[in-house]
Design a binder for these strands. Structure first.
Length: 502
RNA sequence: GGCGCUAUGGUGCAACGGUUAGCACGCGGCCCUUUCAAGGCCGAAAUACGGGUUCGAUUCCCGUUAGCGCUACCA
């Protein structure tokens, strides 16, 4: 399929955030669904920045949105396009509507329309009973300017009576009464000496989706009620609407719309916390969508293979952080080790613990730590990791010789007065070993415990604190093997010296 | 207020007229055990309410209730 035919016949979707805030998890989920759909069908993904509101728009936030999408692995084939740079297109479309009678110049002050929940006094059609006009219809729409001399905005002239229908892939056939739809603004009134201002949302969306040949509009269900307006606009512009697919919203734990008070809603905050992007993606994909079966661990290629609009739910979903954390630990454990290593590398670079000799193919360091060693260490650590920064915090002693021993761990496992003596003895015995492997360390350590008249567990726990500084760490003898004989012995001796002082 | 959407355990999803209503997270217990995880096993926990339609409703229809959305010269 050539690119030209793709543009004409293939699936084309878009994600259209507004830079009035960061990338919200709800927006991220919408972006993800669009992306999965595009990739599933070999279509094109478009990124469009809807920045037509100069007042609220914060250009500096665009980069954060892009960063968030990139972290999520959501890429795009076209764009980013900026609506603020496409003003002429919208003005031309608005003029076309005025010319063909589907829009009018409105001279009313903006606040006259606010609320919109009444009939213009003095108009004939008064609401009695149901089904009658309930929204403002000013006299401007009939060519009688309400406020002569004022700068006009362009409003869409919603038909009186009748209904507007459209099909939604998720919600089914929808029908709205035209009398419930206000004469929405297409173009703001001009400021200063300009004739008209910027486009409003409805116009920009429709003009751009037409211009960009968007075939499927996948967006939040908060736009369901806006859709009839857009369908009307498509017709006025002589086009047929695309396929709509509205996806349910994401809520906080109390079922109200997800917001800051529910905790983090900025996708970049999850990156900062150290979640794996693929785990986050898997979690997000399952919010409002189901592949059908019971399997939940779906890697990105599985998501792409199985994604379909038919699997999208109509029920709003609560963002469940514990489940997100579960997904993260699952990915930490189940990912092929080579897929995990780059993430750990980034984390160690971030914390300044990274060593160049750990990159694949690099010459090993004098202490024989090379890429294979790094891989083994990560593999040993990962069942206990919850978030990426754990590799730099409680696992620090695996990657650096500069670590401190947790006072609480010492308190708990160095309580027995025999500990210093046992540690010293263990250091001697281990130093004398001629082979360094799990079983050798195991036998030697247990022998020391037995000779000292203590349970093996007591010594094992004490040694763990001595060599990694933490109460929590991987099984001791595996840890010893990964750390190496010299380090283990040195740290034991250091621990004895330290505890003697204390 | 008006209009619209939705309604399966606490949460996310299955079951798309006939199942002992399934899976997962979380929660409790047990096992494993060298700390902490992971893992294994077991358990508690749901069809919002009321009417219909039907031989039979979680499933279809109506109403109620609740939640959410839209109702801006925001997007």
């Amino acid at each position: 399929m050539t690119e030209t035919t793709n543009r004409l016949t293939g699936v084309r979707v878009r994600f259209a955030p507004s830079p009035t805030g960061y990338l919200h998890v709800g927006g991220a989920r919408t972006a993800l669904f669009n992306w999965l759909f595009a990739r599933r069908h070999g279509g094109a993904m478009i990124l469009r920045i809807e920045d037509t509101d100069a007042e609220r728009n914060k250009p500096e936030l665009v980069q954060g949105i892009i960063d968030g999408l990139q972290w999520l692995g959501v890429d795009w084939d076209e764009g980013p396009f900026y609506q603020s740079q496409r003003t002429e297109l919208y003005r031309a479309a608005a003029k076309k509507c005025v010319a063909n009678g589907s829009a009018f110049l409105c001279y009313c002050p903006a606040d006259k329309y606010a609320g919109g929940d009444y009939t213009e006094p003095g108009q004939d059609e008064e609401p009695k009973g149901g089904g009658l006009r309930r929204v403002t219809r000013c006299s401007c729409r009939d060519g009688k300017p309400s406020t002569p001399g004022a700068k006009p905005a362009v409003r869409f002239k919603v038909p009186i009576g009748g209904t507007t229908k459209f099909a939604d892939t998720v919600f089914g056939e929808r029908e709205f009464s035209n009398d419930e739809i206000e004469d929405f603004v297409l173009l703001r009134s001009g400021k200063g000496d300009e004739e008209f201002g910027q486009s409003m949302y409805q116009l920009g969306v429709v003009v751009d989706d037409m211009d960009m040949c968007v075939t499927h509009v996948i967006r939040g269900a908060d736009h369901l009620s806006n859709t009839p307006k857009q369908v009307l606009l498509y017709r006025a512009l002589g086009a047929s609407p695309p396929v709509f697919a509205h996806v349910p919203l994401i809520l906080g734990a109390d079922k109200s719309r997800l917001s800051k008070r529910h905790g983090a809603t900025d996708v970049n905050l999850y990156r900062a916390e150290g979640f794996l992007p693929e785990a986050f993606r898997n979690f997000l994909a399952l919010l409002g969508w189901s592949a059908g079966g019971d399997e939940e661990f779906l890697r990105t290629k599985d998501l792409i293979e199985r994604f379909s609009l038919e699997g999208v739910s109509r029920t709003n979903a609560v963002f469940d952080r514990p489940k997100l954390e579960w997904f993260n630990t699952q990915y930490l454990q189940r990912l092929p080790i080579d897929d995990l290593l780059p993430e750990v590398e980034n984390e160690l670079k971030r914390s300044g613990l990274w060593k160049p000799e750990w990159v694949a193919g690099a010459a090993p360091a004098p202490d024989e730590r090379d890429h294979a060693w790094f891989s083994r260490a990560v593999d040993l650590l990962r069942p206990r990791i919850r978030l990426l920064p754990d590799f730099s915090s409680w696992s620090r002693a695996f990657f650096s010789d500069e670590f401190t021993r947790d006072p609480a761990a010492k308190e708990k496992f160095w309580k027995d007065p025999k500990v210093p003596e046992l540690l010293a003895k263990t250091a001697d015995v281990l130093a004398a070993l001629t082979e360094w492997n799990h079983d050798a360390c195991d036998h030697a350590t247990r022998a020391v415990a037995e000779a000292g008249g203590v349970k093996a567990g007591l010594l094992i726990n004490a040694v763990r604190v001595a060599i990694v500084g933490q109460a929590v760490a991987p099984p001791l003898f595996d840890t010893m093997v990964v750390l190496g004989q010299q380090r283990v012995v040195r740290r034991l001796q250091d621990a004895v010296a330290g505890s003697a002082k204390a």
